[in-house]
């Protein structure tokens, strides 16, 4: 599903060169649930922006669903992002001026989909996250947990191949966080491929596999992979350690 080989990302200014990722390699198979952990500034977010095609990388190779994304122009990346990736952000990132239904339809607008089809998919996604009764509500009228569920519905509406979650419970209290995490696990059990960035070891422990990043490098698999019921067994060792 996702394969990064020796990916590096260097941010350059006139005076400073920052290596955010250094020869980072990772392979995530279809249906996997991987947690990416690491301290602040370790490169977790950079990994997520590159994995989500939000920005290009400096060196290396990245295959998303067997498509080499290096050198793609902005339009190509936008299209691939829209069709294959669903995002769940820490801050939910719902559009405050749009109601729940319109928010979920946002990514579908960029697919030249008919109004009826958009509506159908958005309603199904909201049904999936249990928010069918809140279609006309605005984000400000919802709790944090509900907002994150809407964001998850928005990510699911397009039928993505990969769900990228950035600290999805970071802005939620414990009870809401539990609900959102259960939803993510449920989505995974239904077959979705999920990569979740988190600094919370407890949440990371709920993923099948953990990848720890320090100084832009994957330092290893923190524990043996676990398998959710219903998923096929796969071999461990997909994390390539950087050469030292």
């Amino acid at each position: 599903m996702l394969e990064m080989r020796e990916v590096s990302k260097v941010y350059r200014t006139e005076t400073v060169e920052t290596h955010a990722l250094r020869g980072f390699s990772l392979k995530v198979d279809e249906g996997e649930f991987v947690a990416v952990t690491g301290p602040s500034g370790s490169g977790k977010t950079t990994f997520l922006t590159i994995a989500g095609l939000l920005e290009d990388f400096t060196r290396g190779e990245y295959l998303l669903d067997h498509v080499n994304v290096h050198g793609m122009n902005d339009n190509q990346r936008s299209r691939l992002r829209n069709e294959k990736i669903g995002f769940v952000f820490q801050a939910f990132n719902l559009i405050p001026d749009l109601n729940v239904l319109d928010n979920v339809e946002v990514p579908l607008h960029y697919r030249h989909m008919s109004g009826g089809e958009r509506r159908k998919r958005a309603l199904a996604a909201l049904e999936r996250v249990g928010l069918s009764a809140r279609l006309k509500h605005y984000p400000a009228e919802l709790s944090g947990g509900q907002q994150q569920r809407v964001a998850i519905a928005r990510a699911l509406a397009g039928g993505p191949r990969l769900l990228l979650a950035d600290e999805p419970t970071g802005n939620l209290d414990t009870a809401m966080a539990r609900g959102v995490m259960e939803l993510i696990e449920e989505i995974h059990r239904e077959g979705a491929t999920i990569i979740m960035v988190t600094h919370d070891p407890e949440l990371a422990a709920r993923a099948q596999r953990n990848v720890h990043i320090v100084d832009g490098m994957a330092t290893g698999v923190s524990e043996e992979p676990r398998f959710h019921p219903g998923l096929r067994e796969r071999t461990a060792g997909d994390v390539s350690l950087p050469r030292s």
């Binding site: 902005d74 990132n93 960029y110």
Partner: peptide, 16 residues
């Protein structure tokens, strides 16, 4: 600005 960034992240092209 943030909303525009979100739209871009969700697949909007510059021309959108």
């Amino acid at each position: 600005t943030r909303q525009i960034g979100v739209r871009r992240a969700l697949g909007a092209r510059r021309r959108d």
